[in-house]
Design a protein around this nucleic acid. Sequence first.
DNA 1: AACCGTTTCAACCGCACTCGT
DNA 2: AACGAGTGCGGTTGAAACGGT
Length: 475
Amino acid sequence: MKSKSEEKMISKNSVDDSPYVEEGNSGGNVGGNGPLKKGPWTSTEDAILIDYVTKHGEGNWNAVQKCSGLARCGKSCRLRWANHLRPDLKKGAFTLEEERRIIELHVKMGNKWARMAAELPGRTDNEIKNYWNTRIKRRQRAGLPIYPPDICTQALNDNQHHENMDNFSSGDIQQSDFLSMNVFEIPQFNGMELNQQLYTPALLDIPASSLLDIPASSLLVEGLDSSYPSKSLLCTMHPSKDPRGPESMFYGVNAPIGGVLQGSSQYPNDGSMRIVQSFGFSAVYDHDSTSNHALSSSLIPGSHAIMNGNPSSSEPDWAMKLELPSLQTQMGSWGSPYSPLPSLESVDTLIQSPLTELTQSCSLSPRNSGLLDAVLYESQMKKNSKNSCQLTSPASTMPVDVLHTSSHELHEMEWEVYGDPISPFGHSSSSVFSEYTHMSGNSVDEPPSAETMPGLNIYVFGISELYTSYITPLC
DNA sequence: AACCGTTTCAACCGCACTCGT
DNA sequence: AACGAGTGCGGTTGAAACGGT
């Protein structure tokens, strides 16, 4: 059995040894029985492929090799044609309008590059995917939310007319309906009204202390060391997974926004998830780790960590497969032991991606396992967890004003950086955290007690959790 | 000029779906 | 129903380009 690296070597060698196979080794690779060439296409190969498609049309790509003698597999031919040779392709950088469209589409569709490409004439899925991935990386480095709030707001508003629809079936809900689905579940869900939702009685059912009882560092550690006893409510909800399209299946993330848990299999997942993430909301905390019922739950800003149960357990698929490609390769950027105080990028990463994925990729991913960074990171996290347990566990012992100060500082930091130097929309965007500030009203100036303002505690918990997670290395 | 880190993007891979037999 | 070929899709990789020192 060949390892992947061996295959890569073979593949690489086949390219390196004969970059112009058809010219230099025309005999062996022609006729369909020779080894197929990999690697960059040459102009000669392009010409052959164009000639073939001109004569025979698209499709039946495996016949290309037979008919034209091109030493490329059908897959490679299709890809080359679709991504580079098609006459209707639009070359050049994305326009601002296209960029905005991509963001809007991603809000609605997630990583459905092909579907997004269908909405952008002349652009390929690969192109969009590459663009998106680089954009995510840039934004993460800049500590910015992936979705500019104005896009989120717009997308939500665009779908708000659905909000009064109270009867919908789960059946074949398409991803493009995600926002609608969100609105169904979150009446008057938009920027400000979302904040108001935080104060609904259902959301206040959870005693602040029960939220604050979770040391953020432990939550972080939980992903690395699954011994931490708390389990996410979400981990008790098993999605009925439709393996492909219905990745749209919702696994219970947004239900708590409305204060009521819905059946886990009825709702689209990643659309709602994204919106929630876009606003920095994400998780449900089941403070009764043993219960299976749809217990009271809350929307907790910036608390992805708590939705992560044992990564080896029956984990919701959405937690396993989120919308942030290649994030595991960035573990070092936010969890690096070399940076004592993680940057906003770290916060953003945490907000945007469940810890499960991060920790899994850290501790389980073959790509990272054994890597020094991963080992150091895990070591550091465990060390931090000890420190934070000493300092913050139970977290409710942390003075609210401290939490509040931290959240406020965090907010200010986010606000400062939000003038997106990259995104064309940054200038018009309002900070996600600024909305938290709106939500908390004058509480920034006069932090109330945890007991008297449970809603605020939810807020405080969410932000402070993040903060706590990140300040512990300093302790 | 040389080196090095980062970014971009073309291409590959594996998986899953569709359709015909 | 089972199978295989063809195709589509999303994730990942690695070389080239780029930029900074």
